[in-house]
């Protein structure tokens, strides 16, 4: 049974607002009294996902859902998709442009960092359609 469900739209290549959804989600979880360690892991993964939506997609959304056992964060986008997920998951591999790197991102750490911080991580992608990432964070470990 879900006690909270909220969606946060994320625009492609908008570096001015990039991170605002993650900041809102962090504030929301703090207000709900979620364990600081869980908030920290989720905030890192959420920000990575949001930056990926900004950099790599044609636009998407983050969906936060909470039940008494866990918090789930789903990142869904419309975009080019990922041809080789195993390669994309390897640290250091990145297809980000030089402009993105100038902003301090695109080191090829994002997907692996999301997986590291989440208790469960699942990614699906279709080339030419988009990518869906589901991350679960257990509240009571």
């Amino acid at each position: 049974m879900s006690i909270l469900k909220e969606e946060f739209p994320v625009e492609a290549m908008d570096f001015v607002t990039a991170g605002e959804a993650s900041a809102q989600i962090k504030r929301l979880l703090k207000k709900l009294g979620v364990d600081p360690g869980v908030i920290r892991r989720l905030s890192i993964a959420c920000y990575e996902a949001e930056i990926n939506l900004v950099i790599h997609s044609d636009g998407g959304k983050l969906t936060l859902e909470m039940n008494p056992e866990n918090v789930s964060l789903i990142s869904e986008d419309v975009g080019p998709g990922i041809p080789d997920i195993d390669l994309a998951m390897s640290e250091g591999y990145s297809t980000a442009s030089d402009d993105v790197r100038m902003m301090g991102f695109g080191a090829g750490m994002g997907l692996a960092n999301m997986a590291r911080n989440a208790d469960r991580f699942h990614i699906d992608s279709k080339v030419g359609e988009g990518t869906r990432i589901e991350m679960i964070f257990d509240i009571n470990k």
């Binding site: 920290r40 890192i44 920000y47 990575e48 640290e91 790197r101 902003m103 301090g104 991102f105 695109g106 080191a107 090829g108 750490m109 994002g110 692996a112 960092n113």
Partner: peptide, 9 residues
């Protein structure tokens, strides 16, 4: 690189 900072906090 903020990507690196996020990866090793």
């Amino acid at each position: 690189m903020m990507s690196d900072v996020l990866a090793f906090p």
